[in-house]
């Protein structure tokens, strides 16, 4: 990574998609640039907020799937 560090690189950093070498470069750029640091903070906050949504399927849905699997296995045998 020889180009200028952008907000998109910070997104990749926050979502853990940079290799160790690029991660180090982006972290260094953030330490030297208040705007990048501000963007990093805002993405981290948004990520935390998004984490508050987590939905689970109803247990009946899971039971239907397991029953289907069991039945199709029995049929195959």
């Amino acid at each position: 990574m020889t180009r200028e560090i952008t907000n998109e690189d910070i997104l990749l950093l926050v979502y853990g998609e940079l290799n160790p070498e690029d991660k180090q470069k982006v972290e260094l750029a953030i330490a030297q640039n208040p705007e990048l640091k501000q963007y990093l903070l805002s993405v981290q906050q948004s990520k935390q907020l998004l984490n508050t949504i987590s939905e689970e399927p109803h247990p009946t849905s899971v039971a239907i799937i397991q029953e289907f699997s069991h039945d199709s296995h029995t049929e195959a045998v």
Binding site: I53, S54, E56, P57, H73
Partner: peptide, 24 residues
């Protein structure tokens, strides 16, 4: 190979990600 509990583990592992994505 016929082990149904392996499917149960897979569903348990991924159900939240898959369901939340569908729901949203």
């Amino acid at each position: 190979e016929g082990n149904e509990s392996a499917l149960e583990t897979l569903i348990k592992r991924h159900k939240s990600r898959i369901f939340t994505s569908i729901y949203l």
